[in-house]
Structure formats: C-alpha cells, structure tokens
Amino acid sequence: MFSGDRISLTGSKSHLALVRPPGMGAPRLEQVRTSEALPGDFVCRTLIAGVCGTDLQILRGVRDDPARILGHEGVAVVEEVAAKADQRWLGATIAVNPTPDWGAAELGHTLDGMMQQRFLVPARLRSLVVSSPAELAADLAILAEPLASVLTCGGILKRVAEPIRVLVVGRGTIGQLLRIALKTACASVRDVVVTGTKETAGVEHRAFDTVILCSSRQDVAAALIIGLDALCDGGTLHLFGGLPPEGRDPRLPGVNLSEIRARNTGGRVGWPLTEQCQTTVGHKRVAITGHRGSSNAMLTRAMLELSARPNTYRPLLTIVTDPKEAVRTLRDAVGHPPVRSWTKLGIDLRKW
C-alpha cells in the first residue's frame, strides 16, 4: 500500500499484542493500534520473540520499566517504511540490538517491544537494526542477543586476564550459553562450572580465577556471596546479570557495581576496564569488571554462530509456542509461587 512516500506491505490498522497490566502480572492478549511509520521509521512484523530474565523481572515488579509490551529478543520482517531511501529494507529479515552504546535500552523497556505482531523501530534507533542471515532459523534467532552478550563477555575477559577456570553463578539462558560458548569466545578457558544461587554445596572455595555473575537482580546478593567465596586471591569478578541502580555490597567497600558494569555498554569499552578492590571478608584482591549488551557486529557474529551450529544451541529452546500458550506459561512463571520449568521461551507469531 502506498501513501505519499509511505509504503506498507499490509496496511494493517490493528494487531495482536501481549499487553502487560500496570504494575505487575502476566500479560494478556489484546488488539492494539498499529503504528504508522514516519520518515526514517520501520514498522516490523515479528516472527518469533524471546522471553528473557529481564522480562520476567518486569512482569514480577522487580523492575519498573514502563513499556506496556515487552520483548527485545527475536527476529522480524520490515513491512512499512516512509522514506524512498528505505524502500530497499521492505521485506528484509532483521534483528534489533536492544542496547545502544549511548544510553539505556529502549526496545521492550521504555518503548513497546517485540511481543506483538507488529512493532515500531523509530528513526532514532535505526542504527541498531541488523540484517539477519538468510540461513538463520527463526527460532534460533531468539538466542542471538544473549549469545552476542556472552561473546562480548569473553572478549572483555581476554583483555583483563587469561581466565582458565570459570564459575558462572546463574542457571538461566545466559548461564547455559556461557557453558556452551565461553571457550569459543575466550580460548584460554579450560573449565566452566555453572551453579545456581541455591546450589552452593559443590562449589569449591578459592578454586576459580574468574567468576561471572549472571543471576537475576533479586538474587544478586546471594550470587555475590557464592562468587566471592569461590574466587581465588587476585581473581576477576565479571558483572553480567542485572544489578540495582545503586549496586553496592559491604564486602566490596567503595565500589559501585552498577557503574562498573555500565562502563562497557553496547559494545563500547570504557576506562578503566577493571576496578581493583580488596574484600572485607577474606581480604582477597579482586579485579571487578562487567558489561551490558553488545555491538551490532557482535550480534551479527552471534547469528552466524547459531547458523553454523544449530544443533548445539537448539536444546536451550525449551518452549516455542503460540501467543495463547505463551500467556499461560508466563502466568505460571510470575504467579505465587512461580512455576518455571523452562530455560528459554519463544513466542511464535508467524501463523497469527
């Protein structure tokens, strides 16, 4: 459909979305108005959207991100543009890097995200649009953003030291991707042990030269206890998972953990790369680093990695289902008590 310079492949005025209630709670399926592209904007049709730990934290009220519709992981097709120069993008399969190097994440956080049939990429975020390789299966694409972040983590650790024995605290998607891909991202790594915050019995004290924290925000205190106990003197602590805005811990005096993590955002590496600290318990010397998100180039690398080794990563896709079943699954996951038996949930919108 043509309207001035606007070209749409569908002309749809409304579409289905997983809309979350104010405050906390599972989303509901609702019809919402489809945005129209202004010059520089894209309107995209979601193929599959992924649910990540951050989304669950928002639904549980742990985070106060205002977007009504979540979702920053997945793959989509550009269906509407409003500038002649953008016509070449029509029909292209794309992903959107949710973490810009200039500030906070917007898509699925402050801006309605991909858990809907169509979503808007505003002109100011166009630089975060990345073409998806033709050979990448749509279901695997929901792992691209977290895998890109894992590869970024490996690149940072290589610059800090040469990790050999690594403990990962957090058993979610990130933890499982670190188990699979960290040795690829950082060749010095010989051993990767993954544990949850409630599984401390088998973790050796002072046995790891590197600890990566990728637990949820509400579990960060427990994760720090496990990680600092397991870290050897002179080891590296990498902050991967969510932290509260003023992330501080009495065992790491004078250190703002959130600030250290934010130095390396969207693939941009800040300085200094590490913060040196001595713990108040055990008096260990610790080099602290971290990161948020990845660059567009790393997102592309992750998509190529998924394309090359699909059978290695596909077992992480515990559930890929339609929006109705996804709503039921999310209702269980954010209920009281929460019931979650899956690692990665994908919402398949291709037949809707």
Rank of each mutant, 00 (worst) to 15 (best):
K183G: 10
A67G: 13
V339G: 07
N264V: 09
I225Y: 00
D249V: 10
L177S: 02
P100H: 15
Y313I: 13
M115T: 07
L182F: 01
E246C: 08
L252K: 06
V166E: 00
A76W: 11
A37R: 07
H15C: 13
V81A: 03
L257Y: 06
D229V: 02
L9F: 10
L18C: 09
P253D: 03
G270N: 01
V130P: 02
S127F: 14
L120M: 10
D209S: 10
F240A: 05
L128K: 11
L237E: 03
R263V: 05
H336Q: 14
Q176R: 12
P100K: 11
L228G: 05
R6L: 13
V327A: 12
V43S: 02
N97I: 00
I180C: 02
S3N: 15
L224I: 03
E79V: 13
G254Y: 15
T265D: 01
Q116G: 04
E204H: 14
V327M: 10
H238R: 04
G11V: 14
P323I: 05
E106A: 09
S341Q: 14
R206S: 14
L239H: 04
A83S: 13
G11R: 13
G290D: 03
D5H: 12
G227D: 09
T195A: 15
V51Y: 08
L306P: 01
P323M: 07
R33E: 15
P66S: 13
L349A: 08
V168P: 09
R340E: 15
D322P: 02
H72F: 07
L306H: 03
R309S: 07
L143F: 05
L299T: 03
G242T: 09
R251V: 07
I7W: 10
V168Y: 03
S127Q: 15
T10M: 14
L167R: 04
I180S: 02
H109S: 06
K351G: 00
E80M: 11
T236V: 15
T34L: 01
M303G: 02
L224F: 13
G170Q: 08
R309D: 04
P27V: 14
L316K: 05
A17N: 11
